[in-house]
């Protein structure tokens, strides 16, 4: 492969990979704290993208300004899904331990409802936001870098940094980490575990609210887009090690680079085969992820 082309491939892989990492952050956080795999993760991103698109198409709001609405809206959605639906599982089981499969099934139900409600409301058409910024580039040496992609990439790293700092220093962050380590002990020292769960879930989806708004300028949205993003997020989380914030970013970048190189040799759709293949190999060979503890 000639060096200029390789450089372009690396650039594309890095940009999209960082975004994959950002999208997967919430999934990793929720799994790390609650031991729940949210099957509806990708669907919630899809909902965020529709919301950002709707704000642009209906009110003329630039998606980046629309984020002021999509982030709290998605926080609310996640909070409610946890508080009204998933919490019943925790209440049924002893000591806040949920059988992982029932949680997966429950969120699979949420996934089916969400995807198909959106399909019923908006139909199967592809929706896209067209703003001038979508085609704007800046040059790093000879390499053009697409500005909205770059913004999304930087935001992913920024969110990961803020999230890990917040988890380390704030009271709620400490409560979340304590709950992740040991639910029973957390309850005993007076932490309101159900509230921590609601907030964790809300935070995990609020991040999707941000990325929904950041993605729409260069990514058109359909009701079925969620599953592909959801599965990619699982890949990223497994690659990076479950519950690890920076592992998530690294996992995303690994997946992005892998896909970018694979798509040089086969068509982009076939390149997905390699992402799934990578996922299977990682799970079978090193289930604790690249950065996770064995």
């Amino acid at each position: 492969m000639d060096p200029t082309l390789a450089l372009h491939v690396v650039k594309n892989g890095l940009l999209i990979g960082g975004i994959y990492g950002g999208v997967a952050l919430g999934l990793s956080l929720i799994f790390g704290v609650m031991r729940i795999i949210n099957f509806a993760h990708g669907s919630m991103l899809m909902v965020a993208m529709y919301l950002a698109w709707g704000l642009w198409a209906g009110l003329g709001l630039h998606p980046y300004i629309g984020a002021i609405i999509t982030v709290p809206a998605l926080f609310g959605l996640g909070y409610l899904v946890q508080a009204c639906i998933i919490s019943h599982l925790f209440r049924r089981e002893k000591a806040f331990v949920v059988e992982p499969l029932s949680a997966l099934l429950l969120t699979a139900g949420v996934f089916l409802v969400m995807d198909n409600l959106v399909l019923m409301i908006f139909g199967p058409d592809v929706r896209a936001v067209s703003i001038d910024l979508a085609y704007a580039n800046f040059f790093l040496g000879d390499i053009p870098i697409n500005i909205p992609r770059f913004i999304a990439f930087v935001s992913a790293i920024g969110v990961a940094g803020v999230l890990s700092w917040w988890l380390k220093t704030s009271d709620m962050g400490r409560a979340i980490r304590a709950t992740a380590q040991n639910r029973d002990a957390a309850t005993m020292v007076g932490i309101n575990v159900p509230l921590v769960y609601n907030i964790t879930f809300g935070l995990g989806t609020a991040i999707l609210g941000l990325f929904g708004a950041l993605l729409v300028p260069f990514f058109s949205v359909t009701p079925t887009l969620g599953l592909a993003f959801g599965i990619k997020s699982f890949v990223v989380v497994v690659l990076g090690g479950i519950g690890s914030i920076w592992g998530c970013v690294v996992g995303g970048i690994v997946l992005g680079l892998f896909e970018a190189f694979a798509s040089q040799f086969v068509t982009a759709t076939s390149a997905q085969i390699f992402s799934f293949g990578l996922f299977v190999v990682i799970l079978l060979v090193r289930p604790s992820g690249l950065l996770g503890k064995a």
């Binding site: 699979a108 949420v110 089916l112 995807d115 198909n116 399909l119 019923m120 199967p124």
Partner: peptide, 9 residues
């Protein structure tokens, strides 16, 4: 379109 899957879910 998709109503039955909403009900399934």
């Amino acid at each position: 379109l998709g109503l039955h899957l909403v009900i399934y879910g």
